[in-house]
Nucleic acid binder design. Structure first.
Lengths: 343, 343
DNA sequence: CGTTGTTGCGCAAGCGTTTGCGTTCAGTTT
DNA sequence: AAACTGAACGCAAACGCTTGCGCAACAACG
């Protein structure tokens, strides 16, 4: 019922090959015939069957994107940006949401993208087995979020520098008891929490501040986790006068905990986050801004470039490593410590 | 290089047809042979070529999802939930992010999903032309978010009831000057803003409160829009003592505007939102909760059910219309009006 | 012990494109 | 005028799978 290429060919009085070449802008077709065919094609509402086309050509014009929790702001934003680049370039996006362990396992064992995509963009950190599985697809790979992996083009930020600027800001304000809400319980092979923690420690050391393990708590990168972590920090014998949360979500959870404890921000406790979440401005959160959409855009572009390059089988894939800029955004949740400290 | 079905067949000592039937659980294969084949297949790392398979069978095991702004919490959450249902059922998801008008136009004129998907889930409201285009695909269609459209299974909420409960709550608290931040400038054919406004007007009328046009402002369903709208409302000769924002994002924008104006929530102005955004709890926003992920799940299920049903060509598609429950969630942004009003 | 069913499997014809080659033909070149 | 060019187009063979049909082999029946 829907038109096939032979229908177009017959209607235009040419062969199917010519239609194929004409519609895809391949040489070997005169301009007039090409125009003719184009007219007939869209008058018939013809669209090439993707399956047939990719079966014959090997190209799918589809990109696989794997992500954890696309519902979360960070990933949703990256995905949004990447999709725009892909679709503008004529690629479709196959989405795999690997939030649950089962979904993730299913994906990597069955690898539904095999023979279905021209490239893969990963918004999660594959463990060694997983990344080997992806490499076995034999297509270009890119990844946002840290953790350089062989064979992947990765775009990310300088986590250390970002965390340093945040903690240093608190130090400069005069804080000495600076807590941190981190995310150690996240997926393995994810270097972000580690890098940010190292930066935290190093700034403290530079400032001559002794590290107090009681001032660190795991917030699992969620709002509730952040809230619980802050509650734990407040239970310390000498609670912090400022906290650095490794994500804005955790920072917001922390602010909620502080409100519950009738502590004011920033008068009693300063809070600085990380990410510049879309709602960070709304709650006046001081944070380390990173170009979230920008990373999606950039990663997508790099992937497309690899697809355009004439595949030289010998040449190693580019495997770029791109660092996006970050900057500290000062808002209303940080201030010098109050003379009497948090009560 | 990657194994083909004939490789598996040879290795297992059977024909390709048998492999095909065995791997897809079709009858006509003895249990032992089936097991044999399964073993050989996964030992060879065989995955059927999606293109070849769907070319031959006509089935794609792929669902198209079109959405505006997947970066926004609401859509991201719906998508997340829907994707889980689809992938658990063995379907892949092709994502089309139609935020920009160009992307949208491109999508509907070229219809890249044609012959590529078994069904389409729309998170946006197609205009009549667009929905006709989708119908022309000849596959089951579903849509979340309002606006019943012929041929679509739609799952949504009772916008009127939700808005009524929100406004009535404000009335019951004793408010008489109740503003509304709406989203009239959204896409056409979207009944949500209209329904919610009607509910607003009707509750006011029931309470014997005269409608004051100066208390309505358009916030375009964004944070910044909400902020600007609130600012406009505050500029009225007699500003409201409470506002009903048609979305939590706008409510948060409104709260931001109020803070800027040194007005306290809820002491000076009460605010109630709509959606129960993941961060609504963090900022203590009173709001009308709707099952966002739930709608994605439900819509996905309904779509799958249609795919499972033996296609009776004569039978009209089910075209269900599902209403999900809503409920008012009381938090900390609403209170009785202050005796002296917002000054 | 011939029929009639079942069950398990192979054959081969598609599915709708793409693409290497071959052919035609108008336009150069000797 | 013969030989030689390209350019424009058609032929037909893939691409890797699914599926209707046919054919054994074997069980169950009268």
């Amino acid at each position: 019922m829907t038109a096939r290429i032979t229908d177009v060919a017959r209607a235009a009085g040419v062969s199917a090959s010519t239609v194929s070449r004409a519609l895809r802008g391949r040489p070997g077709v005169s301009e007039e015939v090409r125009a003719q065919i184009a007219a007939v094609a869209d008058q018939l509402g013809y669209t090439a069957s993707q399956s047939a086309s990719s079966l014959a050509s090997g190209r799918t014009y589809t990109i696989g994107v794997v992500a954890p929790y696309i519902g979360r702001w960070f990933f949703g934003t990256v995905l949004d940006a990447a999709e725009q680049v892909f679709s503008a370039a004529g690629y479709d996006v196959l989405l795999y949401n690997l939030g649950s362990p089962e979904a993730r396992k299913r994906f990597f064992t069955r690898l539904p993208v095999r023979k279905r995509v021209d490239a893969v963009l990963s918004l999660l950190i594959p463990d060694p087995d997983e990344s080997a599985a992806l490499r076995s697809l034999g297509v270009p790979l890119a990844s946002t979020v840290g953790g350089a992996r062989e064979g992947f083009t990765v775009v990310g930020i300088d986590d250390r520098a970002g965390a340093e600027s945040a903690v240093r800001h608190l130090v400069n304000l005069g804080h000495r008891r600076i807590g941190m809400i981190s995310g150690a319980s996240g997926p393995l092979h994810w270097t972000t929490p580690v890098d940010r923690r190292e930066a935290y420690l190093s700034v403290l050391a530079d400032a001559g501040i002794a590290h107090d393990p009681a001032l660190e708590a795991d917030g699992g990168y969620t709002v509730e986790g952040g809230e619980q972590a802050m509650t734990r920090l407040l239970a310390a014998s000498r609670p912090p006068t400022a906290v650095f949360a490794q994500s804005d979500e955790m920072a917001m959870g922390a602010m909620r905990a502080l409100r519950r404890h009738r502590l004011r921000v920033p008068e009693d406790v300063s809070v600085v986050g990380f990410d510049d979440h879309e709602l960070a401005e709304v709650v006046g959160l001081t944070t380390v801004a990173q170009p979230v959409a920008g990373q999606g855009t950039e990663a997508a572009r790099l992937l497309l470039r690899q697809l355009d390059e004439p595949a030289e089988p010998d040449a190693q894939p580019p495997a770029d490593k791109v660092r996006m800029p970050i900057r500290l955004v000062l808002r209303e949740t940080t201030a010098p410590p109050s003379p009497r400290g948090p009560q």
